[in-house]
Design a protein around this nucleic acid. Structure first.
Lengths: 305, 305
DNA sequence: GTTGAGCCATAAAATCTATTGATGTCTGAT
DNA sequence: ATCAGACATCAATAGATTTTATGGCTCAAC
């Protein structure tokens, strides 16, 4: 037995409402002929005529009267369900982001995005594992790397370069180091951090630099930054995360030398045929946002130099 | 906006139940590949994945969980509705039949058909107008004519020939007429009936036969037959309608001469691609039935001659 | 009674979609 | 390690739907 010709039921619903093949065809963007075909298909399936053909259109037969409300209801239910699924899908943006980036960069700025798109609610999925986008619910992510993930579109956001920062009050009290080598005489916050030798090498300072401590967990940048901010010494942190403080002058970038592990922060999302609006909006916003800040940074530097 | 891909929903339902594309494909008699395609179609429409792909099959995502019961319900409702429509269509046979034929021939015999096909209930639509089969609900009809209706398949059932009948008691009392002309001396029931001159002409009896009354309504055959049966005289009726009485000997066919208006009773039904079972059953039964009786009649005649 | 507008049916052709079949990849289990 | 089970993908194909064109029917207007 051949099964219910589902394609016919939408046509049936339209015809049942409009009582007219031609009008239904218009509504469905098809020809009257196609409507006729589909209705016949359904009538063959039903084994009985569903419409009575009149001179000025059609009318439901008793059997058609039975089918019509059931079909209308079924279509409405399914339509409504998918509408709500789509709505949720479009209105909730889930971003997988590592803790550091979220707390140091994204969280303070996300309110701007929410003002721009109040209809989109943002949810952070904070974890350090590399999420699989094929897994349910993650729309995009912020990753640290080189921008060459297969199957993912990526946009470079920020360098992960790090550089020494100190507060004006500290500099006032202890004097501002004039050369990178001068830093060796300063109070370095986390002097054992293995990022220091990297930075010093970048700055051209040679010497036996002990690295007794394992690499500082990147999540403590906030802590280091906080100490530096309160005049506790010179901190080595990702400058991008303290952009606001640098701009505000509450932290001073001592040299224009940034060391880097060679990786950058990227916005990534699956290479899809069609990008959903919410991801597109977010991409546009975050690339604008990080780009503008970098320009700003460059201008500041120019003034300083 | 493209609309809900209805073809996908049956596939979705199957996959949701079986949690497995391959098994669903088997159930639906299609390939796993096709199932994959259809599900993708639906997921594109939904704007979100509906299934989570696992190593040993698939699982519904939260959004899929929302859609699944709605779709299952919708499909079940529609399926059930059409099933019941089809069932009614198959189990009720509506026959358009003129009153005379119904009461004189069909009604007494229909119980035999019902014994043969107890699952089919029979409904007579009794009216003299020629019903339009495109109008709802008439499956077949009995018509009086020449069997050449365009668009209709027709099967000849009975001649509408009429002949004089009388009861044995009448014949015993008044003697059996030996020639058609003898009838002029008998008590003719409805002597003004304009069928009499037709019959006499057929029988070769000439003479000035007055026809003062308009043709007797065909529906009174029952009445005429009743009078003849009770010995009230010689009645001119369609012999086919009194076959049982003739066979039983309660009415005697006086001569083997039948006059006819040239028309016959036909079973007719629309020329359809595929004839429904119930109509086919009825056709087989009624043609067998009338054929058997006619054979019977012929045999009787042969014995008489 | 004729004519015309509106509407559905139908047949053949065109189009587009769905399905297949082959192949690739991934994940557990043996 | 290899294998079986399962989904994804691609190009080719079969098949279904849709269109185009036409015909017939009914009602209404002239």
């Amino acid at each position: 037995m051949t099964s219910l010709p589902l394609g016919s039921i939408r046509v049936f619903d339209s015809v049942a409402r409009l009582q007219n093949f031609t009008k239904a065809a218009e509504e469905l963007n098809m020809t009257q002929s196609a409507v006729s075909y589909q209705i016949k298909l359904l009538e063959d399936f039903a084994g009985a005529p569903l419409f009575q053909r009149l001179a000025r259109g059609v009318a439901l037969t008793p059997k058609g009267e039975i089918a019509a409300p059931v079909i209308r209801r079924a279509l409405a239910d399914m339509g409504e369900t998918f509408r709500s699924i789509r709505e949720e899908q479009n209105s909730v943006l889930v971003i997988s982001v590592i803790h550091t980036f979220a707390s140091n960069w994204l969280t303070p700025r996300i309110v701007d995005f929410q003002n721009l798109h109040p209809e989109i609610s943002v949810r952070f999925d904070i974890s350090s594992r590399l999420v699989d986008f094929s897994t349910e619910g993650i729309d995009c992510g912020i990753r640290l790397g080189k921008g060459n993930w297969p199957g993912l579109t990526s946009h470079r956001l920020l360098s992960s370069g790090f550089t020494p920062l100190a507060s004006p009050s500290y500099l006032e009290r202890y004097g501002r180091p004039q050369t990178p080598a001068d830093l060796l005489k300063c109070h370095l916050i986390t002097p054992d951090d293995n990022w220091w030798p990297v930075w010093f090498r970048e700055a051209g300072v040679e010497g036996p630099l002990t690295m007794t401590r394992p690499g500082v967990a990147i999540d403590t940048q906030q802590l280091i930054g906080g100490l530096a901010l309160s005049g506790g010494g010179v901190g080595l942190v990702s400058s991008a995360f303290f952009q606001n403080e640098i701009e505000a002058g509450t932290l001073v970038k001592l040299f224009d030398i940034e060391a880097s592990t060679g990786t950058n922060y990227y916005l990534v999302y699956p290479e899809a045929r069609k990008l959903s609006d919410k991801v597109r909006f977010f991409r546009d916003w975050i690339t604008d946002c990080s780009c503008a800040k970098q320009k700003c940074l460059n201008i500041d530097n120019r003034f300083k130099l």
